[in-house]
Simulated assay, not measured.
Amino acid sequence: MSRAKLKELLIKEKQSLVAMESCGGTHYWAQFAKQAGHQIKAINARQVKAFRQGQKTDANDALAISVAARQPHIKGSRLLSVQEQCLQGIECMRDLLVKEKVSLGNQLRALLLEFGYPIAQGDTKLTQAIPEILEDAENSLTGAFRFTINRVYQRFTEAIEEVKLIEKQLHEVIKEDQTCIRLQALEGVGPVCAILIKIALGNITHFKNGREAAACFGLTPVQHSSGGKQNIGSISKVVGNKKLRSALYKGALAVVSQLEKREVRSQKDIWLKALSVRRGKKVAAIALANKTIRTAFAMQKHNKDYQPQLLVA
């Protein structure tokens, strides 16, 4: 069925449940079907796969989606609004440019190291060293290699400028967004992390409570229990919102590291410092990230600002 025919079907069909597998284009079709008056349920591909019988064909996939959509324990994927999609797109493109910048920088350092030019870490050190190496006419670099290094170096500097421009645009968006401003009051939450939390918790009714939200993002231990025996392991590296979890972990780890150099100021600082001494920095950072999501969920649900319990002097 073509896209035009599918649109006609959704418009003419009586109000019903439109189930689909979460993949590319899910948001567009979900929004279109919703405007046509239908109920939407987008299901994770891993959950659909459990209900597929036989070989992987379009017909078997459709049957599996149909069966999975009728199961009461199968929860649909959360769908973003158009504004949240745009924010997510900006952050994804910024992340892509950062990865490109890092990749180009690492390639330049690795190649020049083989010619006896060790370059210190940092974008500033690299931008200072490359022009000096290219201008040195007495080194053994060939003309073709100099040309290639120069082109890659130009791409590297352009990526730096593009990242700065997009980050400037992100900061402008954050200044006008009250949700992001409130979220940045949380420990270890910066501008980018605030946007990721806002996108993840956009539809607060998707989660029953803060613990469910933390589990969805991969910040709770994985269970492997059987026969009445509970076996609680570590957090999963496969499931969850990896980008958000990584941002939360890095911010929390910075808070834990700084806490060793200053006096405690709140009840959370006392809890975090004791946990860090007892279990180590990394466990404490994950625990703080878990608590950050739960606190952010409560802030979004009740539309309140973050109010830490400060110690009385």
Rank of each mutant, 00 (worst) to 15 (best):
R46W: 04
L87R: 05
E176I: 12
Q83M: 09
W271A: 11
A285W: 09
L87K: 10
H27W: 05
A213C: 14
Y28C: 04
L96D: 08
A313V: 10
R211Q: 04
T157H: 04
R78G: 01
S236I: 03
T26W: 15
V67Q: 04
G210S: 04
D177I: 02
Q267F: 07
P72K: 07
G105T: 11
R262W: 03
Y153C: 06
K7V: 02
H171V: 03
K56S: 08
I195V: 15
F147R: 10
I235P: 15
P72T: 08
G116A: 04
I174D: 13
V256W: 02
L311K: 00
A68D: 07
A159P: 00
V264L: 13
V163D: 15
S103N: 14
K291N: 09
K175I: 11
E84V: 06
L6V: 13
S16D: 03
S234K: 11
I293H: 08
L253G: 02
I174P: 05
Q88T: 09
I74V: 00
V18I: 10
E212C: 01
H206K: 14
Q121P: 06
F217R: 01
K56P: 02
Q35T: 03
A69F: 00
F32E: 08
V256H: 06
L9N: 00
A247L: 12
R262C: 06
